[in-house]
């Protein structure tokens, strides 16, 4: 739903302002992000249309590669039917989660001034690679050893129906000149593992577990 709303907004604005759209801009960024015993490195490239009479709105699509690495991270039951009720969630603890995702992404930005831009972007669809990891399944006072792989397919849907590894950023950019900017962002990164068996059995069988990481990030953006 988020994606649908975003795309509708996107195409509506494009359609409504098509007479005014005469320029585009491309941004590529390298970003490092860090949080509590976890972090990520991402590389993205966006093609944006500059909209509005002042050409301050920048909206478009692109792609992003995200490599996430963590140490001793908890992953909670991912399916919406479980994730929406904390009483129904179990968790797995992974010693060294590491996933690599490539996703199509959308971006909405606003150029406050020639020097400063603000915006938001979010992954929408893609796939994830990564090796099998050992961990511990935790169900209240019970626990047992388990293992799993990163969930292969990523898709942005409504609420907890999201699947796989999806990155998003609220960012601010400061442009040193027309081509180069520093980017400061709050990164919200979902990563997901699928266990080898449906290790959770109640209240329903489940093999998908998600980690939601809030990370502070710093990057360099080049305008093409």
């Amino acid at each position: 739903m988020k994606l649908l709303i975003f795309l509708l907004l996107f195409f509506s604005i494009v359609a409504a302002t098509s007479a005014q759209t005469s320029s585009t801009v491309n941004y590529g960024s390298i970003t490092g992000a860090i949080g509590n015993s976890q972090g990520s490195i991402s590389i993205d490239y966006f093609h944006l249309w500059k909209l509005g009479t002042a050409k301050k709105i920048e909206i478009g699509v692109g792609g992003r590669f995200t490599s996430y690495f963590g140490s001793n991270q908890y992953y909670s039951s991912a399916p919406a039917a479980l994730a929406n009720d904390v009483a129904k969630t179990d968790s797995i603890l992974l010693g060294s989660p590491q996933v690599n995702a490539i996703n199509l992404a959308v971006n909405l930005g606003y150029r406050l001034s020639p020097k400063i831009g603000l915006g938001f972007n979010i992954d929408a669809l893609g796939f994830t690679l990564g090796s099998k990891k050992n961990g511990t399944y935790l169900n209240g006072t019970q626990g047992e050893a388990t293992s799993g792989n990163p969930t292969s397919f990523n898709v942005l849907l409504v609420g907890n129906n999201d699947r796989g590894t999806l990155n998003s950023e609220f960012y601010a950019r400061y442009f040193f000149n027309e081509k180069l900017a520093i980017k400061i962002a709050y990164q919200f990164l979902f990563t997901e593992y699928t266990t080898d068996t449906q290790i959770q059995q109640a209240p329903e069988a489940n093999d998908r577990f998600r980690n939601k990481a809030g990370l502070f990030s710093l990057g360099i953006t080049k305008q093409f």
Partner: peptide, 15 residues
């Protein structure tokens, strides 16, 4: 503090 079926944490009860 765990009670476990083995000397590792293969299957345990968390106290």
């Amino acid at each position: 503090v765990y009670l476990s079926t083995t000397s590792g944490a293969a299957s345990f009860v968390n106290l």
